Amino acid sequence: MKITFTFILIIFTQILFAQRKLTPQWQSDTTLRSPESVWVDSKNKVLYVSNTVAFEPNTTAFISKLGMDGEFIKKDWVTGLNAVLGIGIHKNRLYAAEAFSKSIAVIDVDKASIIKRIPIDGAELLNDITVDAKGIVYVSDTRHGKIYRIENEIPTLYAENLKGANGLLAVGKDLYVLSDGALVKIDQDKKNTVISKGMEGGLDGVVQIKPNEFIVSGWQGLIYHVKSDGSNTVLLDTRDKKISAADIGYDNSSGILYVPTVRTNTVQAYKLD
């Protein structure tokens, strides 16, 4: 059989832009309290889940520790937090965004205790967190459309004019942010490039599954696949069931996507194919 270049190109294109799918694996029990963010520790086979409890000032929130099967290791792993949203880990430090107290709680992972807080002066609603390979922390201020950079525990304004800035992801020298229905890349020179746009559902979390390929969650209950060409498709829509999709986590080694549902108090796991 004669194989033409055009035929090879068609097959390659089909593989490159193949439709992804999500297959349900498990769901945790419903004793979480408005779970907002999942951080995946693949090395230690642990999930850390922020429990906002109530989205209002002076709320006593906590972080839970789960196994990769959704079973609790310790529900109230760290307590005494205030309306905690995004979380991120570097080495043995977990950083947690306290929405209304306008600070980042720094937690010693080994001791499961808060060791200090880093205030962000001028912030209004701290939301998502990402930490790069050097341990530099980035946090979004959703109400002001800003991103702060924290190095050596000193916060500075990194980017602004990003409407509704929420989900963050540090990849190499680039920072990805969800803003106004779009996935935007901010490079090391602080140049903004729109990677994908036109998404709805209150964009919340973003993870990278392959170079230039992402999964994005929309708070109301949408999961998007952002392809390498910038196009996006909906993989999951649970809005009619009133099941939210907040700040997702992803395990590259197993291909499992973890979705905190906020309103229904669970974490749901899906196999991404």
Rank of each mutant, 00 (worst) to 15 (best):
I15K: 09
I15R: 08
F17W: 15
F17P: 11
A18S: 15
Q19R: 12
Q19T: 11
Q19Y: 10
R20T: 12
R20G: 14
K21R: 15
L22M: 07
P24Y: 10
Q25E: 15
W26C: 09
W26E: 08
W26I: 08
Q27Y: 08
Q27S: 15
S28P: 06
T31P: 07
R33W: 08
S34D: 08
S34G: 09
P35D: 04
P35Q: 09
P35H: 07
E36C: 00
S37V: 06
S37Q: 05
S37L: 05
V38C: 00
W39P: 07
W39S: 07
V40I: 13
S42K: 09
S42I: 03
K43R: 12
N44A: 14
N44E: 15
K45L: 13
V46W: 09
V46R: 14
L47V: 12
L47M: 13
Y48Q: 10
Y48S: 08
Y48H: 13
Y48L: 14
Y48I: 11
V49C: 03
V49S: 02
S50D: 06
N51M: 03
T52I: 02
A54P: 06
F55R: 06
F55W: 07
F55G: 08
F55Y: 11
E56M: 13
E56L: 13
T60Q: 14
T60W: 11
T60P: 12
A61P: 02
F62C: 08
F62N: 02
I63Y: 02
I63F: 03
I63V: 13
S64R: 00
S64Y: 01
S64P: 02
S64I: 03
S64K: 02
L66T: 04
L66P: 06
L66H: 01
G67P: 04
G67I: 05
M68R: 09
D69I: 03
E71G: 00
